[in-house]
């Protein structure tokens, strides 16, 4: 096993079955540290499933069987405690899912679960996280209000703040803007651009323009296989594979 600090994730010969369904086929991939990597491809191609492998959320489904290895910073994630893994690899979901509690409690949820009780520390974490998620100015006067009162875009940024609060190294984003309007979407994209300085970001998206705008690397998925992966500018300007070209020029998908 090469000892490589450059990569946060190294995926080797990964196969995943849902029952009889072969969802991911022989995936090999490296995810670079401190870069934005986008997974694109038509619906049902397995890109979200692969994302959920990275923080072991697929463990929650009994019928899911995974073969092959995923290394997080050179440690096999199956040998890690999933709780520990998930504090290092945060996740933002497709539709905003804040908890039905106050804005403050939402952001403080992760740190509290990890045992931080000191009020001043929590307040500090909440403020920093909200600032990093560009939400602080909008909500600083109503941290005690219920999070469900926020708009959809604000809720999603709250979910990003909530993920940041556990001080992860990687943030997984599963189509984070698919439930949002264009203005909220562009705010999230700006945010991703800022966050990539501090975090490795892996984003699943339906939207090719989005992948082109925000990512450094792109992987194109089709029917459970990685067809092509490379630098985003290269992949979009000069696709090596015919299927990739067909997809990004809009001939299918």
């Amino acid at each position: 096993m090469e000892n490589n600090q450059e990569y946060d994730f190294i995926i080797k010969n990964l196969n995943l079955h849902y029952g009889d369904n072969h969802v991911l086929k022989d995936i090999n991939m490296e995810i670079k540290h401190s870069r934005v990597t986008a997974f694109i491809g038509p619906s049902g191609c397995g890109k979200s499933t692969l994302l959920r492998c990275l923080n072991r959320m697929n463990d929650l489904y009994d019928i899911c069987r995974i073969d092959g290895d995923i290394f997080y910073k050179n440690i096999n994630i199956n040998e890690m405690n999933p709780v520990e893994l998930r504090t290092k690899v945060g996740m933002v979901f497709q539709s905003p899912n804040p908890f039905p509690m106050s804005i403050f409690d939402n952001v403080a949820y992760g740190p509290r679960c990890n045992g931080i009780k000191d009020k001043a520390t929590l307040k500090e974490i909440v403020t920093t996280s909200l600032k990093k998620a560009s939400l602080y100015d909008e909500v600083k006067d109503r941290l005690k209000d219920n999070a469900l009162g926020l708009s959809g875009g604000q809720q999603q940024r709250l979910c990003i703040a909530r993920a940041i609060a556990i001080q992860p190294e990687v943030i997984l984003m599963d189509e984070p803007t698919s439930a949002l309007d264009p203005i909220a979407t562009s705010k999230i994209e700006e945010l991703i651009d800022e966050l990539k300085q501090d975090y490795t970001i892996i984003i699943v998206t339906h939207n090719m323009q989005q992948a082109a705008r925000i990512s450094d690397y792109t992987a194109f998925f089709l029917l459970g296989e990685v067809i092509e992966m490379g630098e985003t500018s290269e992949l979009f300007a000069n696709p090596q594979n015919e299927k990739t070209e067909d997809y990004i020029t809009g001939r299918f998908g």
Partner: peptide, 15 residues
């Protein structure tokens, strides 16, 4: 209780 709430909690490193 909605599954996405449960998943969100687990993904935040809650046991």
């Amino acid at each position: 209780v909605r599954q996405d709430q449960i998943h969100a909690s687990l993904a935040l490193g809650a046991t």
